[in-house]
Design a binder for these strands. Sequence first.
DNA 1: TTCTGGATGATTGTATACAAAGATACATCT
DNA 2: AGATGTATCTTTGTATACAATCATCCAGAA
Lengths: 232, 232
Amino acid sequence: MNAKNVKEEVTDKYSLRGRVFHRLREDILSGKYQEHEELREVTIGEELGVSRTPVREAFRQLELEGLIQIIPNKGAYVVGITDEDVRDIYIIRSRLEGLAARWATLHISDEQLEELEENVYLAKFHAEKGHLEQMFDLDNRFHEIIYEACNSKMLEHQLKDYHQYVLRIRKRTLSSAARGPKSNLEHEAILEAIKAGDADRAEELAHQHLINAYKNMVENGLIRLSDDDKRL
Amino acid sequence: MNAKNVKEEVTDKYSLRGRVFHRLREDILSGKYQEHEELREVTIGEELGVSRTPVREAFRQLELEGLIQIIPNKGAYVVGITDEDVRDIYIIRSRLEGLAARWATLHISDEQLEELEENVYLAKFHAEKGHLEQMFDLDNRFHEIIYEACNSKMLEHQLKDYHQYVLRIRKRTLSSAARGPKSNLEHEAILEAIKAGDADRAEELAHQHLINAYKNMVENGLIRLSDDDKRL
DNA sequence: TTCTGGATGATTGTATACAAAGATACATCT
DNA sequence: AGATGTATCTTTGTATACAATCATCCAGAA
């Protein structure tokens, strides 16, 4: 899941293979296809109205992304995403977001800083009004700005990939409204740290921000966790 | 998941697509194909004596691995990797390796621990003898054991992805022999921390281990770095 | 009964044919 | 000359035909 830029991702969606790829990823992450379910090339092809060729190519990519497992001459099986995976994704992402916030502190542009401030200001407004959809979008954008500001092609791409996962998880669970204001305060604190040029603090705050988001999901019973929480 | 994985990787190599995939990866990593060079489906197919179909599937995978860039309806181009990318990869991986070492401390099995100890012991031997190839393999295996021991499908997958890049960089630069013994000592320290159940220390040591490896490359002039090193 | 072996059908692996998009070269117009 | 349109060629995108492999089932022997 590595080097592709935004432009390709877009054009990508206009090829049949691209559509199959994105659609299948959606459907696997959303839970339409159960874990261990077998995906047949012709069946998927018929469902999406394409032949086996683009399906096969999409399968190979999904395998590399770890979403399906292909056993040669046998078939493709959905790997699925467990609650443990969700936990790990959040923790991994929390570390990388911390790193991104650190680097953003070093390299953020005036324009980006301004957009962050506007973002925080607007989010406060929509939180008071209870506009869930706008809060959702602003939250995404806040993180995206940080990714862009960190000035690292590798890290940005990595985090945007994970964002895909996180979006799906959120869709699956529906984010809790109560988390909004707290999340906003945390965004504000991260912004302040970046403005103050305090990279250590920015990293720690961004890291904790993601951990809090995850904990909130657990507390609300959206994700259940069997074993120890030592990983956090 | 391990024994099975190995078997698949092997069977993989007996399919035409698998052969094309592995062969192309080799050739790109070894520098046979220059940066920005265009890879044509028929040409590659003729070279390897196969049709376009397996070549295309291999291309899609190589794209996800970040080794080539596919521009729709145009062609596939070998992707370059800048010194800044190398720096970011090492830093990102250093954080994730730290996390992996932390989790490995919590979840490592007796067998894995034993293999780690054997690995460290053997590495010392080969370092004294100056067996570069064996040291290289043992080093890779050391990290792989940690990945497997961390007991996280997501993190393991992530780190193995990055490993691709690192292998590529190493091949490009040739690792310096002088680093060997120091690296071994660091491995040993990581192992001790894991055995002692000290997750914090394991994380910090593993993190620093990667940073040291990177610094060594810079000091030996294998990698040039233009701007500030504040990112470290 | 239980095991073996082969016929049969289903599914993937590969090759190839055809369609569509981009690149090139040249003629034409201003 | 420089710009523009177009014919043509090259290359990729997709569909489909055929080959190879795997799974299933049932007959027949121990």
